[in-house]
Design a protein around this nucleic acid. Structure first.
Lengths: 113, 113
DNA sequence: ATCAGTGCAAACAGTTTGCACGTCC
DNA sequence: GGACGTGCAAACTGTTTGCACTGAT
């Protein structure tokens, strides 16, 4: 199942199935989903649910980052900004919460002109 | 359909159907969905897709804000932080993008102790 | 007569589950 | 022979669509 390990992008379950099938002939989609869920529970991979798209996955070992999704292509670009990360905990702490995790996505389109 | 106007929370389509049905007897769920989609297209309402929950809706007229979702209750609390908003445009502009919109959600749980 | 808006039932997409089967220890 | 992991088909949830009907214009 670690077709994911060699993926540079953010493939969804069906895409992973497509990529894995050649080297595991007869592999079924339910098995892909089961495996992905298991890996996610173990914290080995992350599931991202972007707007209007099936869930996509990537290894969790990469450093923390957020995503910028190109509305035209659906492509997800990663970025990181401490200036954004840093105030979050403070905001949550005030009303008595701990952040379990967060989601920060910029939906963008190529600048025209 | 502007049961939404008097809603203080973030109801989903089924919940809106439940609330609207008394004053529009026989109202069907497809009609609720159709109306919500139309209102969203006109920019009158916003659709939020939080993790592991059906889409929920609110009037667009409220000032821009982000959401903090209590994992225990599913309740969404609104917040706003200029310190978070401000760096976003800069991040997107660098690789030649315009932000169409963004999503910023903190998934939190009540602090124990 | 036409048109927009509706309910119903069925389609749909993505994901999950039940179950029967095979394999390995 | 018992536990496990699989494929298949079917269930499931949230949402959308086809279609026939209505009521206003």
């Amino acid at each position: 199942m670690d077709v994911l390990a060699e993926a540079e992008d953010h493939p969804d379950a069906a895409e992973l199935h497509r990529r894995a099938e050649p080297r595991a002939p007869g592999l079924s989609l339910p098995t892909v989903y089961r495996t992905l869920s298991a890996l996610e529970d173990q914290g080995v991979i992350q599931r991202h649910q972007f707007e209007g798209a099936p869930a996509c996955f990537q290894r969790a070992e990469t450093a923390h980052h957020d995503h910028m999704i190109d509305i035209g292509t659906g492509e997800a670009v990663e970025f990181r900004s401490d200036r954004i990360e840093e105030p979050q905990a403070r905001i949550a702490a005030k009303p008595g919460y701990d952040i379990v995790h967060h989601r920060m996505e910029l939906y963008v389109r190529k600048t025209r002109g």
